[in-house]
Amino acid sequence: MVESKGWEWEKADQSPWTKPTDHVYYLAHKWSESGFKKILDLGSGLGRHSIFFAQQGFDVSAIDISEYGINYLKEWSKKENLDIEAKVGDMVALPYKDNYFDCVFAYHSISHADTEGIYKIISETERILKKGGEIYTSMCSKESWDFSKSGFPKIDKNTVLNKEEGPENNVPHFYADLEDILSIFHNFDIEKIHHIDYCYINHEKKDCKYYYINGHKK
């Protein structure tokens, strides 16, 4: 299994990563309606989604391998007067009790692993979720340009090592197709899988595709 590596946030344009993605507005309503309370923001980055969920009244924990990211979140939550438990840690060995969380939110984070690592991360996620608890996550798609055409080195048949200069340099990226997802999440009742093509981002043509997975622990 490849060693986990986080983003080097010091090298990033941080402004886009402090605004919550549109997915969380829907999820906050859905999870509130379901009576869910305890949320883990898995791979929290700078903490934009932890802050959002806490502002909506959820009991939020956050974990990321980047000490910079966790320190950023701690300072941000203090300024917002929010109580968020934020820890530095690795997704393959989560420091939480079994059956502890109602929901796990993992946005563009669990794909930062190789094939063996992905299965460990999902096993850990299953362990810490309550029965019937919900996961919402994303995975890189094998239909993306950077999997088949980028020329980046492959660690295994599913995993590319990013070689672009910037915050993700040398961060592994696992890529999936639908069959991979159904195998990886075999202990979850899958509610929805969306396959989205980001044709244009910031007025630039892209070939960047992701799966978004919503499911419940059996």
Rank of each mutant, 00 (worst) to 15 (best):
N214L: 04
I84A: 00
Y211V: 06
Q55N: 13
D13E: 13
E143S: 05
A62K: 01
L178G: 00
S148W: 14
V88R: 15
S4P: 13
I39Y: 02
I65K: 15
F101N: 03
K154F: 15
S77I: 01
N169F: 10
I128Y: 02
I128L: 07
A113Q: 11
K154M: 11
F147S: 01
E164S: 10
K5N: 07
C199E: 10
G43E: 00
K120H: 13
V104W: 09
K192E: 06
E134F: 01
E67R: 13
T21Y: 07
F188N: 13
V88F: 13
F36W: 03
Y107A: 08
S15I: 06
I51N: 06
I213P: 00
E204W: 01
S144Q: 04
I184V: 12
D90Y: 08
P172N: 07
E124A: 13
D98L: 09
S4E: 15
G215L: 12
I190M: 15
A62H: 00
M1C: 03
P153A: 05
K130E: 13
H186S: 11
K5R: 09
I51D: 03
K120Q: 08
H194Y: 12
D83Q: 15
T18G: 11
Y212N: 01
C140A: 15
V88L: 15
T125N: 14
K79T: 06
K163E: 14
I121N: 03
P153W: 00
K206D: 12
L82V: 04
W17V: 07
K142M: 12
S144W: 03
D156Y: 13
S77G: 05
S144E: 02
I122C: 12
E165H: 11
